[in-house]
Simulated scan of single mutants.
Amino acid sequence: MTSLGTEHDHWFDDAAGRLIRPYTVSNGRTEPTLRMELLSMVIATGRRPPGQLGPEHAQALGLCGTVTTVAEVAARLRLPAVVAKILLSDLVDWGVVDTRAPDPIADSSNPAVLETILNALQRRL
């Protein structure tokens, strides 16, 4: 097993991947409460979460310490984008994360932007 840098390292294995299924992470939900694009920007507000966060919510919040994209959070958590969006929408609903629409310059239909995202994701994985 490899280290993700958290106390929950035992839930990830290089060969098998995540040992907890994505639908478990999202409590069976398949839709976020907030519409977000892969290039939407997210950042922590600095507010305290209401109660104890689960491990995946805590990891997602930790990744939002600086402005980052939904795609980056999904890649770093090694979760499908829709599951990351569900986690992030929970954090937005609790007031601990803010989100912004993607920068108009970051048009997701632009091949140069897509290539940049692909290269960044490949470097992370």
Rank of each mutant, 00 (worst) to 15 (best):
Y23R: 09
L77H: 04
A81G: 07
T33M: 12
M41N: 10
A71N: 04
R21E: 14
A84W: 00
S108E: 09
P104K: 02
L77E: 04
R100M: 09
R78N: 10
S89V: 01
T69G: 04
T66M: 14
G5D: 12
L121E: 07
L4N: 00
P49M: 03
G54S: 15
E115W: 07
L53A: 08
A101Y: 04
L34P: 04
T116Y: 03
E7F: 10
R100S: 10
P22W: 15
L53C: 09
L63Q: 09
R100E: 06
A44M: 08
W11T: 15
A106S: 05
R78D: 10
T68V: 13
A60H: 12
T66C: 12
V97Q: 01
G28D: 09
A81S: 11
H57M: 14
T99P: 00
S109L: 07
R48Q: 08
Y23F: 08
T66G: 15
A112I: 04
N110R: 09
D98E: 08
F12L: 11
V92A: 05
G46V: 10
R48I: 06
I105D: 04
I86W: 02
E37A: 14
L91C: 03
E37V: 00
P32D: 09
T116M: 06
N110I: 02
A74Y: 00
R48A: 13
V67K: 14
S3G: 08
P50R: 15
G62H: 06
A120Q: 13
T45H: 11
D14H: 11
D103G: 01
P50N: 14
T68R: 05
S108A: 09
M1F: 07
L38F: 04
K85E: 01
S108T: 07
S89E: 02
D14K: 09
K85H: 00
S3P: 05
D103S: 05
E115S: 11
P104V: 02
A15I: 11
L63K: 09
T2W: 11
A81D: 07
W11C: 10
L121N: 00
N119W: 03
L77F: 05
L77Y: 02
I117A: 07
I86P: 00
P50D: 14
L91A: 04
L79N: 00
P80K: 03
F12N: 06
L77P: 02
L118E: 11
